[in-house]
Amino acid sequence: MSDTASVSLALREKAERRRSRLLTLPAVLVITIFGILPLLVIVAFSFMSPGAYGGVEPPFTLEAYVSFLFSRDIFDDTLTFTPDYVLIYLRSLTFALGTTFVCLLLGFPTAYFMVTRPVESRKWWLLLVTIPFWSNLLIRTYAIMFIIRDEGLINNTLIGMGLINQPIVMLYTNFSIVLGLFYSFLPFMVLPLYSSLEKLDFRLVEAGYDLYATRSRVLWRIIVPMAKPGIVAGCLLVFIPTIGAYVTPLILGGGTHLMVGDLIAQQFGSSRNWPLGAAQAIILMAGVLVALFFYVRTTSEAKLHG
């Protein structure tokens, strides 16, 4: 009696499992077609040889990865270490970290301002923050260019007011790249910060004041730790796309500051070295993943203890 009951129960469970597996199919398909397959293609390309007019050819080789770090002497085939690419990666890393930092520095007060507005007006502030998303990135980047170039809005205004004689050179500098990246990715910082600060219980802030904490100490000891999930998410959302950013550094850096995105594009374009481009993309991704791993681990540890 109970045996047949348990058998039918087991059968039903089996059917249940089959159904739930069926329901996961669309997600699995999307991830495979748009995520895993292209990645496998890139990995495969990075282990092949460049074709004469672009594309890839056999044989399989590690040459792309070797040439990332070394240059091969065409006469005696010896390898010498060349840090050129590594330096470009480090430069991109610096720009990405700088942009993330600036976004956090300005995004935090912005998000804090938004959550301290009355509830009815918050949605308007959210709308204002997302307005840049409404126009094309390229157009926005060119707009910045027109504002900061030597004959741009800022310099013309300052010269017109007689404050300066010479235009201040802003375009095609480190400043213009960080400015452009900051402008493009600020909403990615503000929105997660907003959502985590919105959950902040302001009675905790009052409790902090009550316990003799001044404004700055309430900020550092209570608000920042409570907003940590938003800070982590915002930093990741800004850092990851900026380290591989292509359009913004290209236009606002004027090609004077080669960055990873630009470098990879070159391999698939004028250099016709697809394997190297693929290898560079893989190396970038691996680097980001390793950084991400450590970041998540330290923050989840913090969550466990703090």
Binding site: D201, R203, L204, E206, A207, Y209, D210, I222, P225, G306
Partner: peptide
């Protein structure tokens, strides 16, 4: 300001720091 007063509060919601 609250932090300048020798006065402490037990809040209705307790307002303990969860972190």
């Amino acid at each position: 300001a609250p932090y300048e007063r020798p006065v402490n509060t037990v809040f209705q919601s307790y307002a303990l720091f969860p972190h």
